[in-house]
Nucleic acid binder design. Structure first.
Lengths: 104, 104
DNA sequence: TGATTATATAAGTAAATCATTATATAAATG
DNA sequence: CATTTATATAATGATTTACTTATATAATCA
C-alpha cells in the first residue's frame, strides 16, 4: 500500500514519453547515456536531465565506469510500477538494430 | 502490450494527486460529483474538470441519474493500470466517516 | 599537459497544466 | 414558470515542465 503522494510522484516521472521510453529501454539492459541519446535521437542534455529526474525519483540506478555512466532499472521493490513497465512494448529489435558501441 | 504513447497518456492522467485520489475513491464505490467534492474539499469546477479528463481518457464511466451524475472506475480491461490503482491506500474509513447523502 | 570524448548543469523560453472565478445548462420542485 | 440544486464549461492567471543553447566537469589518451 503506497501513499497517494508517493504514487503520483512516481507516475509523474513515468508519464513523460521520453522518460517512459527510457524505462522501456532499460528493461532490456543497462545503458550508458550516449546509447540512450543515440536510441532516442534526443539531445544529450535533454536525456541527462530526464535521467537525473528518474534517478532522483529512485526509479533507476546510476554507475560510472570510467568515462561512461551506466543506468539501470530500480523497480524490483516497486511492484505497482513494475507491472506498468512490464506492459511496455519490447524495444529489443530496435536495440539490436543499433550499431554496437555506437558512442565509443 | 501497450503503445508507449497510450501508457504515458494514461499515466499522465493518474499522476495528478487530485485525480489519483478520485481513482482511489472510486475503487470503493461509484460516487456522484457532489460526494467527491465533499470528500476532497475541492471546488466543484475543479472536480468536474478532473472528472472530465478521466472520462475522456477512458479511465472512468459516467452515468446520469436524475440530477446527479455518477462516476465509476473503468479499468477492468487495463491490467497495467489496475495494479497501480489496487496499490493505492484504502479510502474506506474516510468514506464511512462522511455524512451519508451529504449533498442531497 | 593539452585535446578529445562523455556527461552534467545552468539559464532562458515556449508550451502545458492546474486552480479560480464567473457563467451556462439541466433536472427537480414549489 | 420561477427557484433551487447539481453539474459543466469558459476565461484567466500562476506555476510547472520540457526543450534548447551554452558552459562546466570528468575521464582518457596522445
Amino acid at each position: 500500500m503506497q501513499a497517494i503522494e508517493e504514487v503520483s510522484e512516481s507516475l509523474k516521472l513515468l508519464s513523460d514519453k521520453t522518460r517512459l521510453t527510457i524505462m522501456a529501454l532499460l528493461r532490456h539492459k543497462e545503458m550508458c547515456v550516449c546509447d540512450i541519446v543515440d536510441f532516442l535521437e534526443a539531445s544529450q542534455p535533454n536525456v541527462s536531465q530526464h535521467l537525473k529526474k528518474l534517478k532522483t525519483g529512485g526509479l533507476i540506478n546510476e554507475e560510472r565506469r570510467s568515462q561512461w555512466v551506466y543506468y539501470s532499472l530500480n523497480v524490483e521493490d516497486k511492484p505497482y510500477l513494475k507491472q506498468v513497465i512490464d506492459h511496455l512494448p519490447s524495444m529489443e529489435e530496435r536495440i539490436n538494430a543499433m550499431k554496437p558501441q555506437d558512442c565509443t
